[in-house]
Design a protein around this nucleic acid. Structure first.
Lengths: 350, 350
DNA sequence: CGTTGGCACTCGGTAGAATTGAGTGCCAAC
DNA sequence: GTTGGCACTCAATTCTACCGAGTGCCAACG
């Protein structure tokens, strides 16, 4: 913004005139870099607007009154508020990844192979290394994928294992422990029936379960219900968190570190955090924009990963509100695209 | 030690006389409690030995000379060295868990159900809550368990999924992506052959793979090799880490926190750390006793979990060298026993 | 001889005072 | 509207003094 030689006063979509915008940007950039309050003279020097510190100062009072900047105390420089960061991010020209990092990403995706889970896990590590922030990779739900294979395996007379394979290559296992004992033959038969019953269905489709009262039917009923109960529980979503040690470098204050780690421990929270942000149509959530009280010192960047046009997962980055948005956004963007392409490629490779 | 009315000078297995031992113990206890250097008068007051601070002091110089204690600086109290902690731990009468916590553990194991992985994960959370330290639960390797079921599922013509179920209820999946395309029929046949070939074997046993050159045989060969390659890779060991946020509370110094988290991120390291300690026959590793440079500020407590007398996993706790050994040891002990019993119970429940 | 009280000494931690300096707000002048 | 000048503010730094916990040493004591 205001970087180009904008001649028309065609103000940016928001309500700041060009000069205020430039000043705000300068403050944000500088503060992200130094973590210090930034003063008028620094702004006057850095930005290419040819005005004196005094002028900058008077603009700053306005910016402060309007909530974009704050002063830790009188006689200190200004720091951006969450609103200030928000403006900055909204008006950010999408950055480009550094060459080294671009190379690193390409390298990674050229060589990565193996199970989806492994890829996602490694991706989270990659993303964290790229950015020095903690990364989050949320794996796709397989709610919509069809079942390719179901099998009931007999562990012991009243202890069986239901194993289902989905068309996206994911495997779900669940124990089935009915109150009655079953013979090997019964289990095999149940397995056969389950196979016939469930192949080609999704976890969302309803199936006609047998209502007879023999052991085999009971096994089948229990298996089906166990399998379908799986869905709302985890929705098949896996979370991979990379670089949680970065939290300790990037935040100051033990208490903040503890709180952030504590959230990261709870995978369900992380999933819903990421999903919330995506649902809001955002790619960045700053401070209180996500509903998490204890993450108010954080900014979260997310980028969806799509398969067949459907959102099937996401990558995210978590850092302090003064994180390097340009780089981090670029990294998340690039990685999510590569990931999307990776899965697409995998699907039609055969 | 020295707590009981020991009449004989039957010294403890190590080389400290009773009074030195008492003093050392007092210093350790106090320092664990307060995190401060402890002085001679404090020791004289706390321990039930009826001597003056001066005497304590003169003993302390000896203890320091012998490497059990250290002084942060002149005119400060003493701090235990790793050797001091070691002595303390070696002579620790095994403590008992608090009532509340005992109850909590019993409650937990009475109600816990579900897949092994879930149990282990929840156990790690439990253990961390019990102790306020970060916990580690290492899941059993299934190298020795037999294969109950093998299946090759056709995802697309050159993309298949090998799913194996083991007698311990674990499931392994692995993609098989041969260079050639295979029909559905071929895959089904290969699946059938694999089943016949592998059922009842372990990952360690060698099997006679067909040497013919048709597609099906090739599929079978590739599947078998892929499955057996699984073994050394991960050895089926899963790691669950609970309460990593505790790291931030329990250690001081951002750098330490970062280093510890950084280690915890690398699951393989954690596994080998735990295994190393167990292999040494220890239940506690203090400071440099485990080989990990960056964990020199830590103590690690481990307790094996056995199934059928075989070590099949372990639980662990990670804290600062000045951790509450008695409680933590008791917690690890109790939880590992419960876990052992849990798995035993599960096995013969049917 | 081991134990003890006494005592001088050390040195980190704290509290207060003085100082510095970055940065502001205001204002008069351009 | 912009600017230089200027008085003012206040966190951070430095310095000083001092306190006191704790030590090491020693002479005396049973």
């Amino acid at each position: 913004m205001a970087r180009g030689s904008a001649k028309a006063p065609a103000a940016p979509p928001s309500d700041l005139d060009a000069r205020k915008a430039t000043i705000l940007e300068a403050v944000v950039v500088e503060h992200i870099d130094t973590a210090q309050p930034v003063g008028s003279s620094a702004v006057a020097a850095s930005a290419d607007l040819q005005v004196s510190p005094a002028t900058v100062r008077s603009e700053m009072v306005t910016l402060e009154r309007e909530g974009y900047l704050a002063q830790p105390h009188t006689s200190a420089g200004r720091i951006p508020t969450d609103k200030g960061y928000r403006y900055f991010v909204d008006h950010l020209k999408s950055g480009v990844l550094g060459n080294v990092q671009q190379h690193q990403v390409r390298e990674f995706f050229a060589n990565v192979r193996g199970e989806v889970e492994d890829v996602l896990e490694q991706t989270s590590t990659l993303l964290s290394q790229l950015t020095s922030y903690t990364s989050v990779v949320v794996g796709a739900s397989h709610a919509h994928t069809t079942i390719l294979s179901v099998q009931l395996v007999n562990l012991d007379p009243r202890h069986h294992l239901l194993v289902a394979v989905f068309s996206d290559g994911s495997v779900v296992k669940h124990s089935v422990t009915p109150a009655f004992e079953s013979s090997h033959v019964d289990v095999t038969e149940a397995s056969r029936q389950l196979h016939a019953l469930l192949i080609g269905t999704t976890l969302e489709s309803t199936v006609q379960v047998p209502s007879r009262h023999d052991n085999v039917s009971a096994l089948v009923r229990e298996s089906v219900s166990v399998l379908h109960a799986e869905k709302p529980q985890v929705d098949g979503e896996k979370v991979f968190i990379g670089g949680s040690s970065k939290v300790a470098q990037v935040f100051d204050g033990v208490e903040t570190v503890r709180q952030v780690l504590s959230i990261l421990e709870q995978e369900l929270l992380v999933v819903s955090l990421v999903q919330d942000i995506l649902d809001q149509g955002l790619s960045v959530a700053i401070g209180a924009e996500h509903g998490f009280e204890s993450l108010s010192a954080c900014a979260v960047i997310v980028a969806p990963v799509t398969v067949d046009g459907q959102q099937a997962g996401a990558v995210g980055l978590l850092g302090p509100t003064r994180m390097k948005y340009r780089e981090a956004l670029a990294a998340a963007e690039v990685v999510s695209q590569h990931l999307t392409r990776h899965f697409a490629g995998e699907d039609d490779r055969g």
